[in-house]
Design a protein around this nucleic acid. Structure first.
Lengths: 368, 368
DNA sequence: GTGAAAGCGCTAACAC
DNA sequence: GTGTTAGCGCTTTCAC
């Protein structure tokens, strides 16, 4: 790691001024081709790598965007297998079991990929940060630190307290992903939760004659759940069914809880024609409860989910669900930031992304 | 987005010098508690967020680490659904089909998570970058750009040409993930490919009396495959079986290719007692070929994979495989960089991480 | 414990 | 087209 060459080194090596070096690297067209070649040659020869910090400081933009993710896994205290002997290979029977809290549950991977893709296209780097905090002050420090390094920050709902975000939002543009429209100055990217659930429920009523669906809800404070339920209720009302007369069960977005819900329904002999879940995890949990009991899905009971996670296409039967455009969510977020960076005075924009109802065996039965 | 306050603003607001402000933020213990409080108060009041660029420039370290991933998906030309009507919900039948190139194939997600986790612990940010390039020069520019923004770079094998890396490696420490030991000055993190495959093969010979396993290999230029095969061969030799007498088939690490391999084996009536695959994807492909043909696994043919991807635990039967410690790979990478940053003159270090043989139904049959 | 001052390595006016 | 010159906003000696 020899001393790093700077613009000055390149400049004198190429016999030009530092300004010219800078130009060659940022706006090559402003420089005569021959000069350009000379500079580029020096750059290569010296192994020059421009300092991002110096650039960022001088240009007042870092060229980096941030993505803040909620701490789903709470992985923070994982021990590290630092000192095990790599040459000893453990051979172990791995019996089938309740699938561990799989890696693929990290449903934000797709959002992340969308962000990275669009950031790359727009010429930005992407720093990701999982919002874990040992303490609130610590979180605040870490976020402030992050904010100082990026030109804009995309925040997935529930990642950070709004007051912290608001402070940061004073300095750099923030775009808020999912979660309902809020009274803040951020740009928002949301998906058609209500519309999607409405379309799904209408399908159930119209095509399958369902008139007493049970709704399995998420946590009370989930705005997503609230929107989905309201779409559900709208659909029923529009078909002359009174949603308030129908049971709403609570599954907390959890597969295990939902399984218990299903078992309870069976025990009480209270199975409806259809069970509409506020997310896929719970629908999977319902399946976990129904299938072993010999209840046939969808012949006896139709089950539906929401989100379109990978596992929804791997269950038996596969889950009818409403697919969220996760990749697009990430891309839209980056686009929103780039747009705002270009024009900071624009009014806050809310972008709504369409969802798709995916009809599969858990509602339709055997499919072509 | 009002004008951003700087150290100067904070300093005068708090009635101290900028040096003191800086100290409060970086080494609070060097400052009298009362002064500290005053400064902190001003920081909050002004909504001060320190500039990462200025810090990086002055301190000669950015506090950012980079992770470079190979371009598995080649997503770059995805169209964006920018202008569809979010209120229109498409309702569509989604018949079962060959599972699309699932998201979860992105087997680096886990490495990424490991990096993020450890980076966070060590007080670094993490920027990720997928190594796609429209052209070689473009790749070079992008990487150089990246390199300028980070204190160190973790590179997953096959992400970038070695000459480019070597150039960058002159400026910042690079740690190379997976892939065999190489003649470079990088730190390496590798896994026990050879040992893992050897243990697996020994198990097959010793416990299942297999004496004519077929090996399904990856691409010719894959160092991982080479190591795995050598472990395979070692195991057989140690049991008095001559590996060179056994057929090696080529599946290119591809599920589809492997399926064809299986079908060919069936057509030629050349099924062995066991098919050992160099990765899980191919083992899955073998299953794809065997199962529809009515071949029973493992009764007729044992099938094994390598890697321990999520899908290996979701197939029917579930796959016996060798699990790689992906999360640990990421963590070890970050640890290696931090170590080197602290002491740049250390000799290059290669860290080998242990793997685990997971015995499941594709070799053991029904399990407890 | 605190302040003054000198950079860190670039970009962006502004001259020429 | 190219060079000169100010900073950008911090950290870090070195005094005091």
């Amino acid at each position: 790691m020899a001393k790093k060459p700077t613009v000055y080194d390149v400049a004198s090596h190429a016999g030009v001024s530092i300004a010219t070096v800078s130009r060659v690297l940022t706006r090559p067209d402003d420089v005569r081709a021959s000069t350009q070649q000379r500079v580029l040659a020096s750059v290569r020869e010296l192994g020059y790598v421009p300092s991002g910090s110096a650039r960022g400081l001088a240009a007042r933009r870092t060229g980096v965007l941030g993505l803040l993710l909620p701490d789903i896994d709470a992985l923070q205290d994982l021990p590290s297998a630092e000192d095990s002997d790599p040459h000893h290979v453990e051979v172990r029977r791995d019996p089938p079991g309740p699938s561990e809290p799989s890696t693929a549950d990290f449903y934000f991977d797709e959002v992340l990929r969308g962000c990275e893709l669009e950031a790359w296209r727009q010429g930005f780097s992407l720093v990701i940060s999982v919002s874990r905090g040992r303490s609130p002050e610590n979180l605040e420090t870490v976020l402030s630190d992050l904010a100082g390094k990026v030109d804009g920050l995309a925040v997935i709902a529930q990642s950070a307290p709004h007051d912290v975000l608001r402070r940061i939002g004073k300095r750099i543009p923030i775009v808020y992903l999912a979660g309902q429209r809020r009274d803040d100055d951020f740009d928002h990217i949301i998906t058609s939760n209500r519309e999607g659930m409405r379309a799904l429920a209408e399908h159930l009523v119209d095509e399958h004659g369902v008139h007493d669906p049970v709704y399995v809800a998420g946590p009370f404070d989930s705005p997503d759940d609230a929107e989905r339920y309201s779409g559900f209720a709208e659909a029923l009302r529009s078909r002359g069914i009174n949603p308030s007369a129908l049971p709403v069960l609570h599954g907390e977005f959890s597969r295990g809880r939902a399984r218990a819900v299903a078992e309870d329904l069976i025990a009480r002999d209270a199975l409806p024609r259809a069970i509409v879940c506020a997310n896929d995890q719970m629908a999977l949990g319902i399946l976990d409860g129904l299938v072993p009991a010999g209840i046939r899905v969808p012949e006896d009971v139709i089950v539906t989910g929401f989100d379109g996670i990978d596992d929804s296409a791997r269950s038996t039967p596969r889950l009818t669900t409403v697919m969220q455009p996760m990749l697009e969510l990430g891309r839209a977020a980056v686009r929103a930031m780039v747009t705002r960076l270009a024009d900071p005075d624009l009014e806050p924009v809310t972008t709504q992304l369409p969802v798709t109802v995916l009809l599969r065996e858990s509602s339709e039965g055997a499919m072509g």
